[in-house]
Amino acid sequence: WKVTVKGVEYTFDNPEEAKKFAEELAKKKGGQIHYKDGEFQVH
């Protein structure tokens, strides 16, 4: 499971962890999460 933040990729074994990480980042940066092709992208 991948989380991509401004072109930087983070990989997680667990989808729950990936989702949590993406949500935290989106909150911090005031961005939005897009889920696409099996990965979370924070913009």
Rank of each mutant, 00 (worst) to 15 (best):
W1C: 04
W1A: 04
W1L: 04
W1S: 04
W1H: 06
K2I: 10
K2Y: 06
K2S: 06
K2T: 07
V3Q: 00
V3S: 00
V3W: 01
V3C: 02
V3L: 01
V3F: 03
V3N: 00
T4N: 06
T4W: 08
T4E: 03
T4A: 04
T4S: 10
T4D: 02
T4F: 07
T4L: 09
T4C: 04
T4I: 13
V5Q: 05
V5C: 13
V5F: 15
V5L: 12
V5T: 09
V5D: 14
V5A: 11
V5Y: 15
V5K: 01
V5I: 14
K6W: 12
K6G: 15
K6E: 15
K6S: 14
K6C: 14
K6V: 12
K6H: 14
K6L: 13
K6M: 14
K6Q: 14
K6D: 15
K6R: 10
G7R: 02
G7P: 02
G7D: 12
G7A: 04
G7M: 02
G7I: 02
G7L: 04
G7S: 05
G7E: 09
G7H: 06
G7C: 05
G7N: 09
V8T: 11
V8Q: 13
V8K: 13
V8Y: 14
V8P: 00
V8G: 09
V8L: 12
E9R: 05
E9Q: 12
E9I: 13
E9D: 06
E9K: 08
E9Y: 09
E9M: 11
E9N: 07
E9P: 03
E9G: 06
E9A: 11
E9V: 13
Y10K: 02
Y10A: 01
Y10W: 14
Y10F: 11
Y10G: 00
Y10L: 03
Y10R: 02
Y10N: 00
Y10D: 00
Y10V: 04
Y10M: 03
T11L: 15
T11W: 15
T11Q: 12
T11N: 12
T11C: 07
T11S: 11
T11G: 06
T11V: 14
T11E: 11
T11P: 09
T11D: 08
F12E: 00
F12N: 00
F12T: 00
F12V: 00
F12W: 01
F12C: 02
F12S: 00
F12M: 00
F12K: 00
D13F: 07
D13R: 07
D13N: 10
D13I: 07
D13C: 02
D13W: 08
D13M: 08
D13S: 11
N14K: 09
N14W: 05
N14S: 12
N14R: 08
N14I: 04
N14Q: 06
P15Y: 15
P15L: 15
P15W: 15
P15E: 14
P15S: 11
P15C: 14
P15T: 05
P15A: 13
P15K: 15
P15Q: 14
P15F: 15
P15V: 15
P15I: 15
P15G: 11
P15N: 07
E16L: 11
E16S: 10
E16K: 10
E16N: 10
E16W: 13
E16Y: 13
E16Q: 12
E16H: 12
E16R: 10
E16C: 09
E16P: 01
E17G: 06
E17R: 07
E17L: 09
E17Q: 10
E17C: 04
E17N: 08
E17F: 05
E17H: 08
E17A: 12
A18Y: 02
A18N: 00
A18Q: 01
A18E: 00
A18T: 00
A18G: 01
A18L: 03
A18W: 02
A18H: 01
A18M: 04
A18R: 00
A18S: 01
K19P: 00
K19A: 09
K19F: 13
K19D: 02
K19T: 05
K19C: 08
K19W: 13
K19I: 10
K19E: 09
K19S: 07
K20L: 11
K20W: 08
K20M: 10
K20Y: 09
K20Q: 12
K20H: 11
K20V: 09
K20T: 10
K20C: 06
K20I: 11
K20F: 09
K20D: 08
F21K: 02
F21P: 00
F21Q: 01
F21C: 06
F21Y: 07
F21G: 00
F21A: 02
A22D: 01
A22F: 04
A22T: 02
A22L: 05
A22R: 02
A22V: 05
A22Y: 02
A22C: 06
A22S: 04
E23L: 09
E23N: 05
E23T: 08
E23R: 05
E23V: 09
E23K: 07
E23P: 00
E24L: 10
E24A: 11
E24W: 13
E24P: 00
E24N: 07
E24F: 11
E24V: 07
E24D: 12
E24H: 09
E24G: 06
L25W: 12
L25V: 13
L25A: 07
L25G: 02
L25R: 02
L25E: 12
L25N: 04
L25K: 04
L25H: 07
A26Q: 06
A26Y: 03
A26R: 06
A26K: 05
A26E: 04
A26G: 02
A26D: 02
A26N: 02
A26M: 05
A26P: 01
A26H: 03
A26S: 06
A26C: 09
K27Q: 13
K27G: 12
K27L: 14
K27M: 12
K27P: 03
K27E: 13
K27A: 14
K28E: 14
K28S: 12
K28D: 14
K28T: 11
K28Y: 12
K28A: 10
K28Q: 13
K28N: 13
K29L: 15
K29Y: 15
K29H: 15
K29E: 15
K29P: 10
K29D: 15
K29C: 13
K29V: 15
K29R: 07
K29F: 15
K29Q: 15
G30V: 03
G30M: 02
G30F: 05
G30T: 02
G30W: 05
G30I: 01
G30A: 04
G30P: 05
G31T: 06
G31Q: 06
G31H: 07
G31R: 00
G31F: 12
G31Y: 14
G31K: 01
G31M: 12
G31E: 07
Q32K: 11
Q32W: 15
Q32P: 03
Q32F: 14
Q32T: 15
Q32N: 09
Q32Y: 15
Q32H: 14
Q32D: 08
I33T: 05
I33P: 03
I33K: 02
I33H: 02
I33M: 06
I33R: 00
I33D: 04
I33L: 08
I33E: 03
I33W: 08
H34G: 06
H34I: 15
H34M: 12
H34Q: 11
H34D: 09
H34L: 13
H34S: 14
Y35L: 07
Y35V: 07
Y35T: 03
Y35M: 06
Y35R: 01
Y35H: 05
Y35E: 08
Y35A: 03
Y35P: 01
Y35F: 12
K36F: 12
K36G: 08
K36E: 10
K36T: 10
K36M: 12
K36S: 12
K36Q: 12
K36L: 12
K36C: 06
K36W: 09
D37E: 09
D37W: 01
D37H: 04
D37I: 01
D37V: 03
D37A: 04
D37R: 01
D37S: 02
D37T: 03
D37K: 03
D37L: 01
D37M: 01
G38S: 05
G38E: 05
G38K: 11
G38P: 05
G38I: 03
G38L: 06
G38F: 13
G38A: 05
G38V: 02
G38R: 13
E39N: 11
E39V: 14
E39Y: 06
E39C: 03
E39H: 12
E39R: 05
E39Q: 09
E39K: 07
E39G: 06
E39M: 07
E39L: 06
E39T: 10
F40L: 07
F40V: 05
F40A: 03
F40M: 05
F40Q: 03
F40E: 03
F40T: 03
F40W: 15
Q41K: 09
Q41L: 11
Q41E: 11
Q41D: 05
Q41R: 08
Q41T: 13
Q41C: 08
Q41H: 13
V42I: 14
V42H: 03
V42R: 01
V42P: 03
V42S: 03
V42Y: 05
V42K: 02
V42E: 03
V42F: 05
V42M: 04
V42G: 03
V42D: 03
H43T: 14
H43W: 10
H43L: 14
H43M: 13
H43V: 15
